[in-house]
Amino acid sequence: MDLAILVQLLINGILLGGVYAMAAVGLSLIFGVSGVLNLAHGEFLMLSGFFVYVVYDRLGLNPFLAVALVAPCFFVVGYLFEMGLIRPLALRKEHVRLASATLVTLGVALIVEDATSFASLGGSFEKSVDIFVPTLVLGTVFLPSLKLVIFAVVLALIAALFLFLKYTYIGLAVQAVTQNRRGAVLNGVNTFRINAIAFGIGTFMAAAAGGFEVIHSAVAPDIGLPLTLKYLSIIVMGGLGSFAGVALGGVIIGLGEALVGFYNPAWGQTVAYLLLVAILLVRPKGLLGK
């Protein structure tokens, strides 16, 4: 393979992985704190993308500004979602609770997907933001500017999350709940509130990813569940309890898709799952799992 092509594929893969990583980190946070696999994660991503489009289209705002407006609203959505649908299940026994909660999120995912394909705001639900920033070209290597901007924002958000967890009191409580729920409760932490906060932050990150999705690609009602599945794979591959692992997992999958996809697009999609199996065989807890 040509060196220039290899470099190009590596860049594409890393940029792609970064975008995967953000929503995956959000899902990992929710899972780590509350123990619930939020299968509706991808739906929030899709809905956010749709609303970002509406804000951009109707109000004429810069799309990134639209994301900055819409994504924080989804913190509230995630928070209320946990309070309304997940918390009522908290009174059941542990293993039943987690299974029920996960099924509830699956139900919500299916309902949202169905409902949005019924809706017809302004035609169909398939939207894409018309924006183009000229690509930076270094020799024969193309650096898609839009994707670079998005990647930078993703890094910033993940870094912000990391700082939040390390240096704020609520962040400390979130870490505590993730590591030892019972212990946190007995130390006075209101774990219900922490659960809701985790859902809020995680959903906010999915919403940001959705906003970026409608900017650099497009959204449609059925993109939610396949993406959620991909994020689950990334989380398991990266190892539970480690954001660095999730970010690494995202990049590995991005690279795998780009490199293998060059030879065969169909295998490019499958390689993600093959890598998952391979990594788990070698390291059952995931790359950086605890």
């Binding site: 690609s217 996809g261 060059f262």
Partner: peptide, 27 residues
Amino acid sequence: IKDFSSIILAMKGKNPDVVLIEALPPP
């Protein structure tokens, strides 16, 4: 599939005059 970059690179290598895409969904 979400990332077409590999496909696009492969196509570029062949230098086609006309590119045809046949897919139903807009996204």
